[in-house]
Amino acid sequence: MSDPAAPPLVAVVGPTATGKSDLGLHLAARLGGEVVNADAMQLYRGMDIGTAKLTVAQRHGIPHHLLDVLDITETASVAAYQRATRAVVERLRAAGRAPVLVGGSGLYVQAVLDELEFPGTDPALRAELEAELAARGPAALHARLAALDPDAAAAVLPSNGRRIVRALEIIALTGRPFRARLPARRTPRYDAVQIGVDRPSGPLDERIALRVDRMFAAGLVEETTRLVERGLREGRTASRALGYQQVLAHLDTDGDMAAAAAETTQATRRFVRRQRSWFRRDRRIHWLDAEEPDLPGRALSLVRGAAAVRS
């Protein structure tokens, strides 16, 4: 799928709150490209404040793709995202536009860049497992997963019923371990330039706390309340999004939004550790410190250097 004459495919990845969106915009502007979203929660319409989605004005006229494509009651699918995003990437490159994939959802990024195949679903089996989840709770299903596939159980939180159900479904359908669907050796589909953006933990923790404070000040609680009226609680993926999950919990109990904000900050910091663990395994990523003075220039040099080698 690599055409030396085609514009480069660039991926800007890394933990949350490191400045990926701004860098992606800069690269798209300098390369004559367009941004392609790789944040699973920014797929949802109406989830704007809590996902730090750029407003139309903040996009500075750069087209963005794969934003606002799902209703909050729909379940995000990596396989569906893979199909839709590859179609956008190939259309942009054919038109002479550089796709700039931006986001921190590691599996979504890998699903686009590498040769990954995703097993299908069996509605009857899925319904049976979901009924069991509702009746027995996630811990019981997680114990079964641990017996069938210890590696998968170690990678899936015992409270994450949706992922536990999917893992059990894949094992039943394929007869293979859940983790086997992610090959240890990554086979690239595209000759992409991957740029990782990170910050030291101390400054990043401060940025996360400030970002969460600003989200709550900007109306995250009110946004969540509006989304509840549109079915947020029924959205298996959307209702688990950081910030929204914590606000929902306190709306349903004590209404303590200061506690919701503190829990969001802590949950985001834990999420950052998981993101780092995922992305640091990929040695193809060129890591840059977001605090260095000429971050945009360094990133652009990497892209142009890779393009020169390819040509």
Rank of each mutant, 00 (worst) to 15 (best):
I49C: 04
I49D: 10
K53R: 14
K53V: 08
T55L: 09
V56M: 07
V56I: 11
V56Q: 14
A57G: 14
Q58L: 12
I62M: 00
P63A: 12
H64E: 00
H64P: 01
L67C: 14
D68W: 11
D68A: 07
D68K: 05
V69T: 15
V69R: 01
V69A: 13
L70I: 09
L70R: 02
D71S: 12
I72K: 02
T73V: 13
T73R: 06
E74L: 00
A79L: 13
A80D: 15
A80G: 13
Q82W: 01
Q82P: 07
A84I: 06
A84D: 15
R86Y: 12
A87T: 10
V89L: 10
V89C: 14
L92Q: 14
A94N: 03
A95N: 15
A95W: 10
A95Y: 06
A95D: 15
G96L: 00
P99N: 04
L101N: 02
G104A: 04
G104Y: 06
G106V: 02
L107S: 13
L107Q: 11
L107R: 13
Y108I: 00
Q110T: 11
D114V: 01
E115L: 05
E115P: 08
E117Y: 02
F118A: 04
F118C: 04
P119Q: 05
D122E: 14
D122L: 07
P123Y: 05
A124C: 13
A124V: 14
R126N: 02
A127C: 04
E128N: 03
A131P: 03
